[in-house]
């Protein structure tokens, strides 16, 4: 199945529930695209539940969530696949398969979806290993490497299939400061190649935010607000 380009991302009258609590209640919003946007979550909003709903289309109990003109809340797992293959998700901490090596973790989506042959996939991975220097530990399982390398693998996995849209949840978490520049380089390279078009990330690190963000979305329970710059963002928060 081929990836579908994403020209529009929006939701209308959306309600997201997590457990038995309403996390987002009857909200409408049009995501600004072709930007690198930092998402800031108010204290009354469960960040994980919102990101989970946007990336996995789960927990949405009411309203419409549009990819282009398609309301994906009505889609089955298979029907959503063409958009899903064009999305990358970087988990904040956990999410690596523990009974597989780091390399097997990275190979899995490429091989499962038959995106390339094994030789091509291994060659493809080499380029990504260079960003975080994980070649020496690629055959170890997640529990056998430090959190820094686990996080590097999680970040690479978000970009490995060269998606148009990437969601990163706290990309700085567990990553040593020394590797920040490499993360920025990875993002820049993906943008330059024309793969990455829309980046959404949440972070607690203002320095990282300053380096990446060219827009901000402030998420409150009943309101999503887009602001262009940091000054407006501070006022909105």
């Amino acid at each position: 199945m081929s990836k579908k380009p994403i020209k529009r991302l929006a939701f209308e009258n959306l309600t997201i529930e997590f457990g038995d609590k309403k996390i987002v209640d009857n909200c409408s919003f049009e995501f600004p695209l072709n930007r690198k946007i930092r998402m800031l979550f108010n204290n009354d909003v469960n960040k994980y539940a919102v990101l989970h709903a946007f990336t996995q289309v789960e927990g949405i109990t009411q309203g419409k969530y549009f990819f282009n003109e398609d309301d994906v809340t009505q889609f089955s797992f298979e029907e959503f696949m063409s958009y899903r293959l064009n999305m990358g998700i970087g988990f904040s901490t956990r999410g690596l398969l523990h009974n597989r090596s780091l390399q097997e973790n990275l190979l899995l989506p490429l091989m499962y979806h038959k995106m390339m042959s094994m030789d091509e996939a291994l060659e493809h991975l080499k380029k990504f290993y260079e960003y975080f220097d994980i070649s020496s530990v690629k055959d170890r399982r997640p529990a056998e490497v430090g959190p820094n390398m686990q996080k590097a693998t999680l970040l690479i996995r978000a970009f490995i299939h060269e998606p148009e849209i990437v969601f990163l949840d706290n990309p700085e978490m567990l990553l040593s400061k020394g590797l920040y520049a490499n993360l920025l380089q990875l993002i820049d390279d993906q943008v330059e190649k024309g793969n990455l078009k829309h980046l959404f990330f949440s972070t607690e690190d203002e320095d990282l935010s300053d380096c990446i963000a060219d827009g901000f979305i402030i998420v409150k329970k009943n309101k999503f607000e887009f602001v262009e710059n940091k000054k407006q963002m501070r006022l909105a928060v």
């Binding site: 989970h52 990336t55 996995q56 797992f77 298979e78 696949m81 899903r84 293959l85 999305m87 998700i89 988990f91 956990r94 999410g95 690596l96 398969l97 523990h98 899995l108 989506p109 499962y112 979806h113 996995r157």
Partner: peptide, 22 residues
């Protein structure tokens, strides 16, 4: 259970791998 806690099931879904079949 531990896959669920470690968000491995969510990760599979994020990669487009259906946990029911995988």
């Amino acid at each position: 259970g531990s896959m669920k806690v470690n968000k491995e099931v969510d990760a599979l879904k994020a990669m487009g791998i259906n946990p029911l079949s995988y």
